[in-house]
């Protein structure tokens, strides 16, 4: 049932992404702070984005093997 499991995990990634990349969680990071000299919000968006991609990659590539 690995295929089914991968599908469910991807749905979880989708829901996580929907939450993390939208109001209200997004608004928590909309502050005039900077991280490594970069605006917090920009860093946050790209990091979450990258994390989602990595999670998806982990799920599908693991399942493909």
């Amino acid at each position: 049932m690995r295929k089914g499991l991968a599908g469910q995990r991807l749905v979880a990634v989708f829901i996580a992404g929907l939450l993390l990349l939208n109001y209200p969680i997004l608004s928590l990071f909309d502050r005039p702070l900077s991280l490594f000299g970069l605006p917090l919000l920009h860093v946050y968006l790209f990091v979450v984005w990258l994390a989602l991609i990595v999670a998806a990659a982990w799920i599908v590539e693991r399942g493909a093997r």
Partner: peptide, 8 residues
């Protein structure tokens, strides 16, 4: 990115 998560 989100859409592709559901692509499968």
């Amino acid at each position: 990115t989100l859409g592709l998560a559901l692509a499968w």
